[in-house]
Design a binder for these strands. Structure first.
Lengths: 335, 335
DNA sequence: CTGTTAGCGCGTTCAA
DNA sequence: TTGAACGCGCTAACAG
């Protein structure tokens, strides 16, 4: 199991380790002949550098840390897929940590990654992370950081997000085209930018295109616990939809809201058009076949890695950029 | 960004690096007083060991490699979640590589992990991997390997699988209880153990409980390309279900078969009870509300890590174990 | 109980 | 064009 080392190659070729090292890295000081001999032999002996020794020597790790809420949510799994490809292309690897939505856990994740040794950090702060001071602190110590998904103005750095505002506007336009202007909007209690932007984008278009004649209502729920969420929504639906159907459609502002809404509507036997954010592969075979707003998850991951690698390469960078990627509307057959 | 080192602590406390090292690892040779002084100061200076130096020195990496087909499939994402928790508990970390279903890519993944440095390998071979000789080879060189999900007799080691046979039997029993014995079974063309075991398990119970009076038919399709799969299934459904409904239900033997079946049935406007393997979080709100066979994905990941760590700890191990975890049946409301 | 020394594998001075 | 020597940060064998 012991891997071949430079020393062994050197011994076997009757050369010094430094010559081997230089030959393998195509150093100009080495003769063509020696280079070829060394390279050839290295392949034969299946030599590969010891990453740990190299990292120790060079002071980098060729590893980036990724902190997310949970990797078994479709959106995040797709993002990770993008991160994976982005890293591979560049010869990097990545370590994932899950905060499970806890701010404390999130800080611990970063701590552990730091302890582990990373060249940069990719993070989607949990919706409970109001104070990103701990990130600013690490940044000041020299850690390259890129925020994605849930971005924030608290920290000056590259960021990658989905254009939630535009996505929501598109949804509103879509509904209005179908003649629907009485919409029940499922928003979020917390100060979650994601949901808020979507509510605002939606209403802005509604206001503009209907000259304020829309009859939308925003319901804010607490997304923290899955079961509680279902209960909250059920209550809302019973009250607003069951007796007198005063709404043309529902707009769900997050993936979880969309799927939980389907669950509740189905349970309550309520039939009402639904449009909502949804990134599952199965979004086209969900009950009621809702119209979906799909986020470019893979591209988010890709772009975020790109930004981070660039930041690692140019640490002195001070001109930061926030990339907004567009969503895609996938029509269901009920609206 | 430069982290505190043993040397710095040593200098600042007027001790030698070895004393610091020993104190921090609670070596018995160090006096209580010194230990406390050192530990206290280390915390104050926010010292953490350099994993790379430690690994280089100790010859291990505290990292395990994981090779899977794709991490954005619900089942695998859930497995990874289990792997994550299992690793974290033990102070290990893991590196994921995706084979995307290609045998060549799979071998390259292992190669890259090896190059990177891992203490052990967790792998779910792709359904195109007929020859696991390359794994046996690495095992012979001393690499601890654990197979999960798609297990194989080609390699003697710990393995973790889902009890596919039993799960399929349960499905058959479930259908028979409902009086359904004319079942269209969607199986797999390739020699994929997963699907085959499920077909066999299903038929075995059908044979037993109906004394061969069942009227099942097994259709084998090629799962390689998603779109082709849909076309194949559509053809099958048009031929067998559209004109004369000679079947009571469909049994889909993989997650992909289940969801693609739903897609096709929906498109063709065919209404027939469906039971199938499905591990998505959204399986309860799929069109037609099929009955699902859910695999204990998280537990598979957990158990596999457990096995691997044990193997890493006791490399001489020769008494191997294959763990079979039970599936769970979740009733839909249409069967 | 503590310090000195050596070496894990590598890349990079400095010397030849 | 090549080699010797050093040190990245750490642990362990060997001294005292």
């Amino acid at each position: 199991m012991r891997k071949t080392t430079l020393k062994q190659l050197a011994h076997e070729l009757q050369l010094s380790t430094s010559t081997i090292s230089r030959a393998l890295s195509d150093n100009y000081q080495i003769s063509q002949k020696t280079k070829e001999r060394v390279k050839h032999y290295a392949i034969e002996r299946r030599y590969t550098v010891n990453r740990y020794a190299k990292s120790l020597r060079e002071g980098n790790t060729k590893t980036i840390g990724v902190v997310i809420c949970a990797m078994d949510k479709p959106f995040m799994a797709q993002v990770l897929n993008g991160v994976y490809d982005g890293c591979n292309e560049a010869g990097y690897q990545f370590l994932v940590m899950q905060s499970k939505g806890s701010f404390t856990a999130e800080k611990e994740c970063v701590e552990r990654l730091l302890h582990n040794g990373i060249d940069g950090l990719l993070i989607s702060p949990s919706f409970n992370s109001f104070d990103l001071g701990y990130l600013v602190e690490q940044q000041a110590k020299g850690l390259p950081i890129v925020l994605f998904d849930r971005i924030s103005r608290q920290i000056k750095t590259h960021q990658v997000a989905v254009d939630n505002f535009l996505g929501a506007q598109t949804s509103a336009k879509y509904l209005l085209d179908k003649g629907m202007k009485r919409v029940l909007v499922i928003g979020c209690l917390e100060e979650v930018w994601l949901s808020r932007e979507r509510v605002e984008g939606f209403l802005s278009t509604m206001d503009l295109l209907t000259a304020n004649e829309h009859e939308c209502e925003v319901v804010n729920v607490d997304p923290t616990h899955r079961e509680q969420l279902a209960q909250q929504l059920e209550k809302v639906f019973v009250k607003r939809l069951k007796s007198r159907p005063q709404f043309d459609a529902i707009f769900a502002t997050t993936d979880t809201f969309t799927t939980t809404t389907i669950r509740c509507l189905n349970k309550l036997q309520i039939n009402i058009p639904l449009i909502g954010f949804c990134n599952s592969e199965l979004s086209d075979i969900l009950i009621g076949n809702p119209t979906r707003i799909v986020q470019p998850a893979y591209q988010v991951g890709m772009a975020a890695v790109g930004q981070l690698l660039q930041l690692i390469k140019h640490p002195a960078q001070t001109d930061f950029e926030t990339i907004y990627l567009p969503t895609k509307l996938e029509e269901g057959n009920t609206i």
